[in-house]
Design a binder for these strands. Structure first.
Lengths: 187, 187
DNA sequence: GTCTATATCAAGATAGAC
DNA sequence: GTCTATCTTGATATAGAC
């Protein structure tokens, strides 16, 4: 079944959020799915193949959230706050963003996966820039603010906060989200 | 020689900045130092022991930069900008902050190392809070700003930017640093 | 599509010589 | 303090049966 493939990829992404690309194994996946390692190898012959499927899945998720954002009946402020808030709710305290995790393991990734994660990072940044630009058009963000700088700053701070949260607890992320909200309100 | 121990720890930190705790091996270290694996095991019997030494070293470095910061003849603004700038200059484009790297590998760390990295993260945050509070006293930062929120935000955004930089290139970090500088100037 | 079995390899680790 | 040699384990990966 083609569904098992999807099941494997989703679980692998979960494991990457928890332990990273290098640390997760076919054994982890097979045990959690109640099958053998060989069975996982049937679907994804090499870890590299699974790596590609993982990054493609992340790319699709990103494109989905992009289409939601294109909805013209929602204000830019709502979209921006929703997008930021979503980053926090998607993961529990022991997890980090899978993109951050893959960026950290970058040097150990197969070349094809490296290229994919670059594509993902670029798109993610593009989405955030569009959101910020839209918010600026709607006068929620000051005209004097640099769209690129602000977009990178928002993304970086949320991703960084997820790293600290894993070690220091929920407060850290909450404080960054509050600071971002404050910042958006005051502009 | 006790110097070899230091040499191993410093190299291990470099490797953690490049590949992470899980991905680096005694083989990496021994090859780069031109000795055998067994020889590294003589100095640090288990990887866990090396892990502890690594985090203790990071802690000491942090305490050193803390004492520099205590210097009353330098303005808070200078200190803050210096501290932030330093984060960027300490690493090249293929490296990230070792603390971020260990936070990402958190689930795979031995318990003692987990505790150490928690201590490190807490101290790092404390240092940044003191800097922000001092800047607030000197009216460089607005009184209405929340010290905790701002400190976490600054740290998170720099660390997050280092992740993106590794994949997307130097511009990302520069943009975050500019945004932070702008923000400090305008308050 | 999943299984058992097995090959291969790298990593962490230890024993004992020099 | 470093060496060779060896052990163990876990991980990627493959072959072939059901």
């Amino acid at each position: 079944m083609e569904n098992r493939k999807k099941q494997i990829v989703d679980l692998a992404i979960k494991l990457i959020q928890q332990k990273g690309y290098v640390a997760f194994s076919y054994d982890d996946i097979s045990k959690q799915l109640g099958v053998t390692k060989a069975s996982i190898h049937y679907h994804f012959e090499k870890k590299e193949d699974l790596g590609v499927a993982i990054t493609e899945r992340i790319l699709i998720r990103l494109q989905n959230s992009l289409s939601l954002i294109k909805n013209p009946s929602v204000s830019a402020e709502e979209k921006l706050k929703h997008f930021i808030q979503q980053q926090a709710e998607r993961f529990n305290c022991t997890e980090i963003c899978p993109i951050s995790s893959l960026q950290t393991d970058y040097e150990s990734l197969p070349n094809i996966v490296k290229e994919k994660i670059e594509e993902v990072s670029r798109l993610e940044l593009k989405v955030m820039k569009e959101l910020v630009a839209e918010a600026q058009t709607e006068k929620i963000i000051n005209d004097t603010e640099d769209v690129h700088q602000l977009a990178v700053m928002i993304l970086s701070s949320v991703k960084g906060a997820l790293l600290y949260r894993r070690v220091l607890g929920d407060d850290v992320l909450v404080e960054v989200l509050n600071q971002l909200n404050r910042f958006l309100r005051n502009q």
